[in-house]
Design a protein around this nucleic acid. Structure first.
Length: 193
DNA sequence: TCCCCGATTAACT
DNA sequence: GTTAATCGGGGAG
């Protein structure tokens, strides 16, 4: 347990608070063969309670159970039958909130401009699937989060790919960062923070 | 059980 | 810009 890791209390607040502050943080993955993968998070989205766009809206089910558990755990789900998406659980037990990790910059063990550009690609690049749903990012040995460089400026805009509550400005990106997703780039510039 | 649809992506025209 | 791929969740019956 590296001192650079975030403690659970760091994640124990609203998703809209966690989403901007984990920009610049490092997501680290230890593969079965021992190889280390490291990426820098550049784009996130918040999904809170009382949020019609969230999987947690409507209460706990088998799929979203992790969202209702302890903060600082990894919530993984399958979309469109093909792609996995990675989320960090926020707030705490019974709340049902999380931050979706949408794009990252490869720092170590990965090559290519697009490998982490988009939530499905990010999960694939790190070799994470449903088997990792519920993994403890504050203590686990296979995947975790560490403090990184604080971004100079953060931009906010509407979330991507949803139809409900699409107007909420809960997508956060490092302003001007070349590694953000295609959707973030195409969308409105968004307001600064 | 049946059925619709999605927090996406890549491969088209 | 448009669309197929692909499958499990969850509401309806």
């Amino acid at each position: 347990v590296s001192p650079q890791r975030f403690a659970r209390t760091f994640f124990s607040r609203a998703a809209t608070d966690v989403a901007p502050v984990i920009l610049g943080a490092h997501l680290v993955r230890r593969l079965p063969d021992g190889e280390l993968l490291r990426v820098r998070i550049v784009e996130t989205e918040a999904y809170g309670p009382q949020d019609p766009a969230s999987h947690a809206f409507g209460g706990a089910t088998r799929r979203n159970a992790t969202m209702f558990g302890d903060a600082g755990h990894l919530y993984v789900y399958l979309v469109y039958g093909l792609h996995h998406c990675l989320n960090v659980v926020t707030e705490g037990p019974g709340r049902g909130s999380a931050v979706l990790l949408r794009a990252a910059e490869p720092l170590e063990g990965l090559e290519g401009r697009d490998v982490c550009r988009g939530p499905g690609r990010l999960a694939r690049a790190l070799g994470l699937d449903l088997a990792f749903d519920g993994a403890d990012l504050t203590r686990g040995a296979e995947v975790w989060l560490e403090r990184g460089e604080r971004p100079a400026s953060i931009a906010v805009g509407p979330r991507v790919g949803i139809t409900k509550a699409a107007e909420r400005p809960w997508r956060y990106v490092i302003e001007g960062d070349p590694w953000v997703s295609r959707a973030a780039r195409a969308g409105r510039a968004g307001s600064r923070r």
